[in-house]
Design a protein around this nucleic acid. Structure first.
Length: 307
DNA sequence: CGGATTTGACCGGCGC
DNA sequence: GCGCCGGTCAAATCCG
């Protein structure tokens, strides 16, 4: 839709893939690296990403954190690229462009959507006259990369695929998903990196208006407990605090537990650190694996048995 | 049978 | 103005 975003993406990527971009373009830009093997706690991706507007945590820390750069396919590693870094902007994690843009995008849209959607759905069914004047405003987007063999990663929410398109400059199609919960207009697109087919690029758009159907409170607490202030603040403040991006280890290449979030922001220049949180299951994180009750919600039972 | 997925058509925005 | 492209719709199909 917004060509701009496509262009932004392309601007960001150039002719290369996200992975190239991530691993090459900003090797020294604020990168979180949470290793499961070392002393570092396996900080859940969820917690890392669940950052909202005025919340300083993630991107603030992204700027302050020591830049530990590791190869993309470092085992059991979560990387978060600072959006500021991503766009090669001055390190101003709390800059107005970040917070204002994100809140605007979110708040505006949630209001508009109600309004427009009604309108829209009435009219659309009669041969889609669609919106007239108003440019459609898009929700803030947030993309990240996951090294995974499966395209559609479980994230605790239920998604319905509503489209698939071939992507220019890529031999892999892009899939479009929408949250199945009524009144929740979160969307996500999933595509594979052209240059590195093992990398899945997931782009979320919008905010869930409901808790994750598979996310128990205890997990949130546990997540907050596991990680320090960053996660607690992040999970609490985020509209997506309840969202869970799970990446069942059994889906992934043993060496490929890599997630590289990219915040695309509302228009590419402003960044919205809203949302998705990822809870990852590292082989060493036995405690995290205990909650089979949860797992059963999102992981087919036969997979659990295989563990 | 109901829900999810597939897939071709359609639409709007943007660049040339 | 035109063509390209991303995003969405919706009928057809699949699947449990």
């Amino acid at each position: 839709m917004d060509r701009k975003e496509g262009l932004n993406m392309e601007d960001v990527l150039g002719n290369s893939s996200f992975s190239d971009y991530i691993s090459c373009s900003f090797p020294l830009q604020s990168v979180f690296d949470f290793s499961c093997d070392g002393e570092t706690m396996p900080l859940g991706f969820m917690e890392l990403l669940g950052v909202q507007d005025s919340n300083p945590s993630l991107f603030d820390m992204a700027q302050q954190a020591p830049s530990v750069t590791q190869p993309l396919n470092n085992p059991c590693t979560t990387k978060i690229e600072s959006p500021a870094g991503v766009l090669n902007q001055p390190a101003t994690p709390n800059s107005p462009s970040i917070s204002s843009a994100s809140s605007e995008a979110v708040d505006d849209d949630t209001v508009k959507v109600d309004d427009q959607e009604e309108d829209q759905q009435k009219t659309k069914k009669q041969l889609k006259p669609k919106k007239t004047n108003q440019k459609r405003q898009r929700e803030a987007r947030f993309a990240f990369m996951t090294k995974s063999e499966v395209d559609h990663l479980e994230d605790g929410y239920r998604w319905r695929k509503y489209g698939q398109k071939a992507v220019k400059n890529s031999s892999f199609p892009r899939s479009y998903y929408r949250c199945t919960t009524t009144s929740c207009n979160v969307k996500k697109t999933v595509e594979r990196s052209f240059s590195d087919p093992s990398v899945v690029i997931t782009t979320y758009e919008g905010q869930h208006t409901h808790p994750s159907p598979t996310m128990p409170r205890s997990c949130l607490a546990a997540g907050a407990h596991l990680s320090s202030g960053i996660s607690a603040a992040a999970a609490g403040a985020s509209g997506f605090g309840m969202a869970v991006q799970r990446t069942p280890s059994q889906y992934q290449q043993p060496f490929g537990n890599t997630l590289s979030p990219l915040n695309l922001g509302q228009n590419g220049s402003s960044l919205n650190p809203s949302f998705v949180q990822e809870r990852r299951f590292c082989s060493s994180g036995a405690s995290l694996l205990k909650d089979h009750g949860l797992l059963q919600d999102i992981v087919p039972s036969h997979m659990l048995k295989e563990e």
